[in-house]
Design a protein around this nucleic acid. Sequence first.
DNA 1: GAGTGGTCTAGACCACGGC
DNA 2: CCGTGGTCTAGACCACTCA
Lengths: 236, 236
Amino acid sequence: MNLPLYIQIKQKITQELILGRWRAGDLIPSEIELANNYQVSQGTVRKAIDVLSSEKILVRKQGKGTYVTTHDEEQIQLRFLRLTSSKGQKEKLENQLLSFNKIKPNAYVAKQLNITTNAYVYQIKRLLTFAKKPLIFDEIFIPVANFKGLTAETIIEKKGSLYRLYESEYGIQMLNAEEKIKAVQATDEVAKYLRIKKLFPLLSIERLSYTYDERPVEWRLGLCLTNDYYYKTELE
Amino acid sequence: MNLPLYIQIKQKITQELILGRWRAGDLIPSEIELANNYQVSQGTVRKAIDVLSSEKILVRKQGKGTYVTTHDEEQIQLRFLRLTSSKGQKEKLENQLLSFNKIKPNAYVAKQLNITTNAYVYQIKRLLTFAKKPLIFDEIFIPVANFKGLTAETIIEKKGSLYRLYESEYGIQMLNAEEKIKAVQATDEVAKYLRIKKLFPLLSIERLSYTYDERPVEWRLGLCLTNDYYYKTELE
DNA sequence: GAGTGGTCTAGACCACGGC
DNA sequence: CCGTGGTCTAGACCACTCA
């Protein structure tokens, strides 16, 4: 258990983030200051920040300093949305809340979120619309324990990204996520909202999102129409 | 146009790879040797290699040296295959060549491959099978100009990954790729091979692969059954 | 001009692989 | 044992931001 120094520094910085001492959007101390605090060279701090920066946890800005990544900036808004228009047009995304309930999760969702089936979760159903056309039917589950007092009104108010809400209202940062993608047929309920026929093929995108310490916080299932849009990804 | 030194070194190394002086699997000169050759410090060479390594173009091996990435190793075989079994079992992938033809591409494929519709391409159709069940129907297009003299026999012989064939027979390295994913319905032809009903939902995975200099070399369309498997990806 | 991150150097020592 | 990449340091200078 003799980790390289820069990894240890990385962990110390991460710890500050977990404890909430440095929050989303904050400017963290300069490299020189951190080097003095931790009694290591600036180069070692640099390397620690390099890693955190490549993990998109921190963001460097030359001449200004290093910041904690936030979902609250335009350009990062769509970080987790990989749907792209086939026609290249950039339409505005609209968001309609369909339902908001407090329920007990089924066994699968509970397991994914690492909670018991007796722990309540909020269930959010919503419809995403691009260019006036319904495109995605989302079903989202988050543990009540992490988001006490959340209401439908709050969700409607912050009509943009839920991640921004998690961050600003609950200090919970979504750092990364895993997606499992399949092709499925539309059910009656979904077909109605997406204005398509039952059994029409849809992209099923199951996403589990994590905050610090790889702790799962949100599970969602998105059902997407892929006539005019496609899911884009890169391999290397 | 005054790029950092380590980027210039990176470009010089890349140039050696493009010229084929260092080929897939080769051991490249040590950091110290490169530093002397290029008249820079070892630290600068390190940083150049760091970048190439994060791009999966080079692979470092402590105590041994730095190698050019190859598709010819077991662990890298499935680098570009993101399909995962829902049941967690690892079955062996089998490969059946369905057809091999020399044709003129349609406008779309020609555009993707950056060639004219008069330049011939090889069209390869094949069926991938896991655990005796047909899983993916692939249709692949590669410019004849890049793969002169390719035959069905060669493909069957190298029954594994085509990328390994491109590399060993033609010295063409696939470095990265873009995928566009949609949900579609099975056509008659595909339904027959995958042993499903027509109109059954399939994952349509369109992939454009690139070699050095972001030069596109292969376009393929994979149609996948996602009953027992799913496409897995990570977001950060 | 002061302070930040970005680049570059030179040199030390460590950890691993293979002879 | 030697040569490789991996870590760490100290110090120099550059490029950018902002007061």
